[in-house]
Design a protein around this nucleic acid. Structure first.
Lengths: 239, 239
DNA sequence: AGCTTATTAAATGTCTGACATTTTAACAAG
DNA sequence: CTTGTTAAAATGTCAGACATTTAATAAGCT
């Protein structure tokens, strides 16, 4: 794989890092492949070697690449990626070509973890947490009918689930909320968006909200499981 | 807080990063404080500005610091730390002064998540996973009586739990295994290490192993919960 | 031929100094 | 008192030379 297929980009090491990271996430290189040399990248995108090195440092820190002096830059396999790094989540969101294996892995994680998270939220949620959840839900409801507001709807969806993770009041679970964004954003491209589907999804989210408000952990777990069943259908993981 | 209290260090930006990170994790600076300037750090440790910048870049990437041109380097609060970053885990392991709030947060996460993980492992474990678990358990058993082998025992303990996370065959859960190391290593400094305690811990681990071997998800969940109850006592979280 | 050892080339890592940019604070003018 | 200007200090960026590591190549010996 060469750099020629990649679009040119506005300045800044962060943008360059995002560009290269997305190409890697989309599978433009195979694990074990040699990544282009610093000087070639700099020449291609017309940036200084410094910028290239900063960008590559990010990709190395997230486990996408492995660099060794003299040898070059190697592409690492998916198992080495730091999927929980917030940078990684940012790079993944909005990527249409995301590897289906990865989408399934993230979904499987959510399906096993999120009921527990919802249960903890039901036990620990403060008034502020409830307010966040209600605001997100209201946003979802308002933007449900409008086909022009799909992206906005997804944002509220992310906000709802993120609020759930936050409501656990646990630092570790809260960090994991980052992982939601790419998973939920993938829905924008894949699901149907007809009224019936959205209404069903909305109802299931409402059940989660109500269970958390009622401090009913068991009901929250069950309701979260139902939301994820809907998500599985929309993601095309099950029919 | 100044740099004077910190030990001098062998060369390399990674070592410098670890040194500074541990000082931050131990709470030597308050959130919102100004961190020392690049040039001061460089002067103090007798390293080039490059090394300092590389080290600070790591601390920024893990959310420990926030840097802005002209303003300086600010210390961020615990809620912003990327606790799931493998680098962070490496920095935390072996740190005796780890903030008790953080130890509790990580433990609370494990207590809510690890039963689920063990259940998934019981459903998905391959022969190779079982072998890893058995090897780790055997190592724990062998090093249990010897008071000189506490560190080794902790390593096998980490290996056992890490093998459990791996056995889920889920990329996300597997990443989370990194978080175990600091949590388990903290036990070396805090728990009693008398024969009775170790034997009890060993028995509970054995129950997890057997449940996974029997593909009994429910039993694995229960057994994992029992292991963590033992851990809570050893960490001094409950009496 | 086959093995070992120098040599060379190429890649990443490091150092240095100068300069650019951003932010804050001091200060002067209105 | 407010506003605008200026100066200082911090991080960000660049360019070039050099160091170090690695792999391939060539030379030389048995």
């Amino acid at each position: 794989m060469t750099l020629d297929a990649l679009p040119s980009h506005p300045g800044g090491a962060e943008n360059l890092a995002r560009l290269l990271a997305r190409a890697l996430l989309a599978g433009h290189w195979q694990p074990g492949d040699l990544f282009p040399k610093e000087l070639d990248i700099g020449k291609h995108f017309v940036v200084s070697r410094n910028q290239v090195r900063n960008a590559l440092a990010s990709l190395t820190a997230t486990g996408l690449l492995e660099r060794t002096a003299g040898r070059g830059t190697l592409v690492r396999e998916m198992g080495e990626w730091h999927l929980l790094d917030p940078l990684m989540s940012e790079w993944m969101t909005g990527l249409v070509n995301l590897d289906p294996q990865l989408v399934r892995a993230i979904y499987a994680f959510r399906f096993s973890a999120e009921p527990t998270v919802a249960g903890l939220a039901a036990q620990a949620a403060s008034a502020e947490d409830i307010a966040r959840l209600e605001a997100a839900f209201e946003g979802m409801r308002r933007s449900a009918g409008n086909p022009d507001a799909r992206a906005q709807h997804a944002e509220y969806d992310v906000a709802f689930h993120d609020a759930t993770y936050r409501a656990t009041h646990n630092l570790v679970w809260r960090q994991m909320g980052h992982l939601l964004r790419p998973s939920i954003m993938a829905l924008v491209h894949r699901s149907q968006h007809d009224i019936k589907t959205l209404d069903d999804s909305l109802t299931r989210h409402r059940h989660v909200l109500e269970a958390i408000k009622a401090c009913d952990a068991h009901a929250a777990e069950t309701a979260a499981r139902e939301v994820l069943r809907r998500t599985a259908i929309d993601l095309g993981i099950v029919s």
